[in-house]
Design a protein around this nucleic acid. Structure first.
Length: 260
DNA sequence: ATGGCGAGGTTCCCTCGA
């Protein structure tokens, strides 16, 4: 089974690329972030026509996450628990039945947190604390589980082509990196790093300043595998070529195959 | 040394992203 994550930067602006990529890559489950659409404007019919079930947690203007799945959804949970005042659409969990039992897949869009030192950075760290608490509880279920999305964290200097550019950015602060490590250290395997130690693997290149041409990239899109999912890991790859397409997202898909 | 883009809504400028 192929499980993918992609920050699409606007599903309505990217529907052509999305359909092309779905046909080419043929993932079974897709986690989308930054759909920038309310639920009733999500272009679900075109996606359904390719054989996907669609569940969205949208928001007007920005944020928004979605799950596309060739498997039927047994359960869908939107919103990360822990703060009923949090109105931002950044989290959707789907549960599926497989021959290995229940499979849990989350599409998450972690807050950016810039500028550092302000309310947005505090929100990012609070969100990560809530996510850690939630993930710890879910791990206790001992199901194959994939927590996939745009984590908005550069975990290590080797995850940026020019790490010195990011020292004052929320994505590369010691607090952000520590919070990410704490989550991974609950017992997750980060799929890309499980298959490569290359220092030239990135998932985001800014539209500005010729970042793509200079390979000024960062690696911030991840799939965290529970032990039960990690034991089924077959392969994982970053689909970098999608960044060369017309009207690309600034992020590219990450695709992981599990032996389910 | 700096900025250089793009999406969507509050539309001819604004916020947001990273």
């Amino acid at each position: 089974m192929k499980i993918a994550t992609w920050n699409i930067n606007g599903v309505k602006a990217r529907i052509g690329n999305l359909l092309t990529w779905l046909k080419e890559s043929a993932p079974d489950i897709v986690c989308l972030q930054e759909i920038k659409s309310v639920d009733d404007q999500f272009p679900r019919a075109e996606i359904e026509s390719l054989g996907y079930n669609v569940e969205t947690h949208g928001q007007k203007g920005f944020n928004g996450v979605a799950l596309l799945s060739k498997l039927k959804f047994d359960e869908v949970n939107c919103r990360l628990p822990g703060d009923s005042d949090d109105e931002q659409a950044r989290f959707i969990e789907g549960v599926f039945s497989t021959e290995k039992g229940a499979l849990r897949v989350v599409s998450l869009y972690l807050p950016n947190g810039n500028p550092i030192g302000g309310e947005r950075f505090a929100y990012k760290l609070r969100w990560m604390e809530r996510f850690e608490k939630w993930a710890k509880e879910r791990l206790a279920l001992e199901d194959p589980m994939v927590l996939a999305g745009d984590y908005n964290v550069i975990p290590e200097p080797t995850d940026a082509r020019f790490p010195e550019n990011w020292v004052n950015d929320a994505l590369f602060q010691p607090e952000s990196r520590r919070a990410f490590r704490q989550i991974v250290n609950l017992g997750f395997t980060e799929a890309t790093r499980a298959v490569t130690d290359s220092t030239d693997v990135f998932t985001f290149w800014d539209y500005q300043a010729g970042a793509w041409q200079k390979n000024n990239g960062i690696r911030i899109d991840f799939q965290l595998l529970s032990p039960e999912a990690a034991n089924l890991l077959v392969s994982s790859s970053v689909e970098k070529h999608v960044r060369t397409w017309e009207k690309p997202s600034d992020h590219v898909p990450v695709v992981t195959e599990l032996a389910i």
